[in-house]
């Protein structure tokens, strides 16, 4: 079943167009990688989907049209966005950051239960729940950003360059968590990455985006072994 269906999506910043007529779909429970070089339009794609960047074209999500809706409503419908560079609030504690993730929800008891649930998935965050987020390591902040996004009870979790500035071992740990979310919690994931090799090992499907166009789509394991794509677009 298709969860997200994007048709003819274009986006621009003023006169500079960043996405050209992109179409793709993401199935329910699928782990999708969005790959591409610097400036290809990956971040813009996520921003257009979450409604922070303006776009034209149609976006259908879970049977509903999203394109005219503001970010807040899209989040309520189940699209969570972990922005690039994490963006945890430095002067808030870990626990407060998680509370911020749930501001679209009103059931306090449910929010508390959700917190406990994600503290189980991210035990490091539980240990540091009363620390200021600004005092966490980069990897912990990334985990916090992901957990915070999960607090909104999304159907689709979009994560922008989770590996940015992290040591390979920590990056691998984050991807193990994605795998766990995907397999155990049946979460649909859309992950933007420059680290193609690692991402392709975990994802089901991969899209390659270049200068605002989607130029390749294939199952992740095929792309992992496709020398042409790797050479032409991913610079491996």
């Amino acid at each position: 079943m298709t969860l997200l269906d994007v048709r003819g999506l274009s986006a621009s910043y003023g006169k500079v167009q960043a996405l050209f007529d992109c179409s793709f779909s993401v199935g329910d429970g699928e782990f999708v990688a969005l790959l591409g070089a610097n400036g290809a339009g990956k971040t813009t794609m996520l921003r257009a989907l979450s409604g922070i960047a303006r776009s034209s074209g149609t976006i259908s999500f879970d049977g509903q049209r999203l394109d005219a809706r503001p970010p807040e409503e899209r989040l309520r419908l189940g699209i969570a966005h972990v922005p690039q560079g994490r963006g945890t609030f430095a002067e808030f504690t870990v626990d407060e950051n998680l509370s911020l993730g749930a501001i679209t929800l009103s059931d306090a008891a449910q929010v508390r239960r959700d917190k406990e649930r994600w503290y189980q998935t991210f035990p490091r965050l539980r240990e540091r729940r009363n620390r200021l987020a600004g005092n966490l390591s980069g990897g912990e902040q990334q985990m916090l950003a992901v957990a915070r996004a999960l607090m909104s009870r999304p159907k689709l979790l979009m994560c922008d360059e989770p590996s940015l500035g992290l040591a390979p071992a920590i990056t691998a740990e984050i991807f193990e968590i994605f795998k766990d979310l995907h397999k155990r919690h049946r979460m649909t994931l859309l992950v933007v990455e420059q680290n193609a090799d690692l991402t392709l090992q975990f994802a089901d499907t991969a899209f390659v985006i270049e200068t605002g166009h989607i130029v390749a789509t294939s199952p992740a394991h095929e792309m992992l072994h496709n020398q042409d794509i790797q050479k032409s677009y991913l610079g491996v």
Binding site: I52, L75, A90, E91, S152
Partner: peptide
């Protein structure tokens, strides 16, 4: 209060979290 401070500290992230 958290929402107010969050949108002050980083408006874009707050928006991504569903703050109007």
């Amino acid at each position: 209060g958290r929402t107010l401070r969050a949108q002050r500290d980083n408006a874009q992230i707050a928006e991504a979290l569903g703050v109007n």
